[in-house]
Design a protein around this nucleic acid. Sequence first.
DNA 1: CGTACTTTTGACTTAGTTCAACTCTAGTGG
DNA 2: CCACTAGAGTTGAACTAAGTCAAAAGTACG
Lengths: 243, 243
Amino acid sequence: MVEALIRKLEGFGPLPEDDKAFVRNLKVRARDFAPRTDIISEGDDPSDVHLVETGFAFRYKDVESGKRQIVGLLVPGDLCDLHVFILKAMDHNIAAQSPTRVVLIPRESILDLLERPSISKALLMATLVDEATLRDWIANIGQRNADARIGHFFCELHARLKVVGLTSDGRLSLPLTQTQLGETLGLSTVHINRSLQSLRERDLVLLKRGMLEIPDIYALQQMSGYRSNYLHLGESGLNFVSE
Amino acid sequence: MVEALIRKLEGFGPLPEDDKAFVRNLKVRARDFAPRTDIISEGDDPSDVHLVETGFAFRYKDVESGKRQIVGLLVPGDLCDLHVFILKAMDHNIAAQSPTRVVLIPRESILDLLERPSISKALLMATLVDEATLRDWIANIGQRNADARIGHFFCELHARLKVVGLTSDGRLSLPLTQTQLGETLGLSTVHINRSLQSLRERDLVLLKRGMLEIPDIYALQQMSGYRSNYLHLGESGLNFVSE
DNA sequence: CGTACTTTTGACTTAGTTCAACTCTAGTGG
DNA sequence: CCACTAGAGTTGAACTAAGTCAAAAGTACG
């Protein structure tokens, strides 16, 4: 059940056996969430840290005026709220998009984990990569026009999912509605719809029924100015440009 | 010279004496940078981690089409590139805005630091707060119109600088040109200028000669939808559940 | 005082939003 | 198995926030 965590921690290099054993001995429990339900809400002071085991979830922030901004996608192996055990309360919400199973790790267990240098280091690394991803997201929203913005986002998603083996031949699952895509990229639903049509006409992407198809990832990277360096997937043969 | 780092690490609670002693024994050297010069560039593989001791710097990412996005401000005590010792290369640039003194900490020393649970934990916490700030930045750029966007940014800056005692009575130093403000917020220089005028006419902010004045911070928070929870600064500056 | 930024202004263009209606799709229950 | 519904996607038309261009005015400083 906690294997997803080990995979995550080993993303930057193998973990000592005793650390792995320690992780496996954590007493954790699982919890399932239906689509479109909140896993954690702003203001919560959870006593457990949540780890996505299966499913697809996202972080979002409510903004006055009823709008909201999606500020992160969570796929299996991602930690939802490592920060809450330090900080007082959630400063954003997390919602399940598809049926999602979450592993709950008690706050004290996390504190124990942090006493182990290898694990602590691995968590820091994972957090640093998240940070880099957020910076790229800012640049994307801040500087690119709608078409490139959408294209760039798709390139990032493709890269992230490819690493964990969740793509096949330029196809990947993207269970977001066009409205949610808009909330992710700071664009209106209508504009997302029109840009998507334009991208399809140019044979750059095809999004249908939660399935995203990228016929030529290189062409999409080209048009959207995507460069993969910030994901830091390197080393273990994952420092790719396209295929 | 490395006191700034200790202050940073103790931001979330006191550090054991031996850890502090360890930090003080690090062999580091300083380096000065003139305004408008790059401290670190994209693609660099620095052998040292950089810590801002005095001055004001910022992170930025170049985007195709000659534009660029500022993705973070660095004030004294901030670490520039904790991630490079893990990751292979910088994925963005850091530039000094005012005369800036930087402390260089050798990569190996950082690795030694990470072997110490208290320090490692403190670094993780600092990184998690940075992450929260970035998420808020995304929501700001993605969802707010120009006036609220600028106002919100100023509120955040005010909060951050207040904690480190760099504000006095709603006044704070903001050594950015209007063009750079635009690069920070994803707006054109001209639009920044006009919004700034509008904000001034409404007595919300007054920016002149690198000095920002906020007559009524509460009013500004109100108009920009600012809530401070995400900075996790609390009352005394330090309102965390640290143990 | 001259050079080089920065800030400001005006006139014009445009990318993206809003509103409101219509269609399509998938799921529900009779 | 079909009818009904609700959410998701699509369309058109009108609107506006923000961008662009280009030039003037202010400021900093050697």
